[in-house]
Simulated assay, not measured.
Amino acid sequence: MILAGLPILLTISSCTQEVGGQVSPADRTSITGSDATGDEDYRLAPPVDNPRNIAELGPCELLSPTTAGAAGFLPDGILEEEPDGSQRCAWQPEDHPDGRVALWTDVDRRGLHEMYVLQENYPDFREFEVAGYPAVQASLGGATEMYCYIHVGVAEDQFVTFSSSLGMKQDDDPCAQAVRVAEVAVPAFPAA
């Protein structure tokens, strides 16, 4: 009887590998990416009722010059490339050149569901809506008085991250700044 349960125990223990004191994201995705029945269509994120398609947009195309100006930012974004090859685009507030909002996409996985899978890693995880689209606030280490990350689901398999940081003399809430930009950007994305 004890030996019969041993393979199950070994399987369970091999699924929860810790990295730096936390379950690694890759393992979390495989553990919670489906429901208890193994249904791969199981989703933690709310559905997207009016999907957009941002898969073909580059990071600096996510916010038009007109939309950036309407949100209080300089019209042209600055393309930034990460060491891993991923790209994002950053815009500076018109009146605070040391502040910024940066946008990047995730269009290759399961949309906002990816953030829900990892929600226990974010001390500031909070659900809300932006322009009728499901969104979460989730910043590693938690949002502070200077920076915040929000993630907006624009299709079942796509989301956009709005990273916001304030300038030294900027009197604003970084999460409010990110939401303000998202509210004008998301409705302007191409329809799916």
Results as ranks from 00 to 15, higher is better:
94 E>Y: 05
155 A>L: 11
69 G>T: 13
89 C>H: 05
75 P>G: 05
88 R>Y: 01
142 G>C: 13
52 R>D: 00
59 P>M: 14
85 G>V: 08
98 D>I: 12
136 V>Y: 03
149 Y>R: 13
152 V>P: 00
149 Y>F: 15
25 P>Y: 03
76 D>Y: 01
44 L>T: 02
142 G>Q: 10
88 R>L: 00
137 Q>R: 15
83 P>M: 01
23 V>S: 06
146 M>W: 07
32 T>K: 09
38 G>H: 11
123 P>N: 14
162 F>I: 07
153 G>K: 01
70 A>E: 14
145 E>W: 11
25 P>D: 06
32 T>H: 06
156 E>S: 15
109 R>E: 11
144 T>R: 05
31 I>E: 06
96 H>M: 03
138 A>T: 07
123 P>C: 14
91 W>K: 04
79 L>E: 08
23 V>K: 00
145 E>D: 15
74 L>A: 10
92 Q>M: 12
99 G>L: 04
63 L>D: 04
134 P>V: 01
79 L>A: 12
52 R>E: 04
63 L>P: 01
78 I>R: 06
37 T>N: 14
71 A>E: 08
55 A>W: 01
71 A>G: 12
125 F>N: 07
52 R>C: 04
58 G>P: 00
34 S>F: 11
99 G>D: 04
46 P>C: 13
49 D>Y: 10
158 Q>T: 02
77 G>W: 00
158 Q>C: 03
90 A>H: 08
24 S>H: 11
135 A>W: 02
142 G>L: 11
112 L>T: 04
65 P>S: 09
103 L>M: 15
28 R>L: 14
28 R>V: 05
152 V>M: 09
134 P>S: 08
120 E>Q: 15
136 V>F: 10
70 A>T: 15
43 R>G: 02
159 F>T: 01
33 G>A: 12
86 S>V: 07
115 M>Y: 06
72 G>Y: 06
103 L>D: 00
128 F>W: 14
148 C>R: 02
102 A>I: 06
84 D>H: 10
58 G>D: 12
80 E>W: 03
82 E>I: 05
47 P>W: 07
99 G>T: 07
118 L>S: 15
35 D>C: 03
84 D>R: 09
94 E>I: 08
72 G>L: 03
40 E>W: 12
49 D>C: 02
72 G>H: 01
41 D>C: 09
72 G>V: 05
66 T>S: 13
93 P>S: 12
73 F>R: 09
89 C>G: 08
71 A>N: 11
60 C>V: 11
124 D>K: 09
36 A>G: 04
123 P>R: 10
26 A>W: 06
160 V>D: 00
144 T>K: 10
112 L>G: 02
149 Y>P: 00
35 D>Q: 01
91 W>Y: 13
44 L>K: 02
29 T>L: 02
95 D>K: 14
130 V>R: 05
114 E>L: 02
141 G>W: 09
126 R>P: 04
80 E>F: 10
23 V>N: 03
78 I>K: 07
101 V>A: 01
123 P>L: 08
150 I>W: 06
76 D>N: 11
26 A>L: 14
73 F>V: 08
35 D>I: 00
47 P>I: 07
144 T>M: 09
78 I>T: 07
92 Q>Y: 08
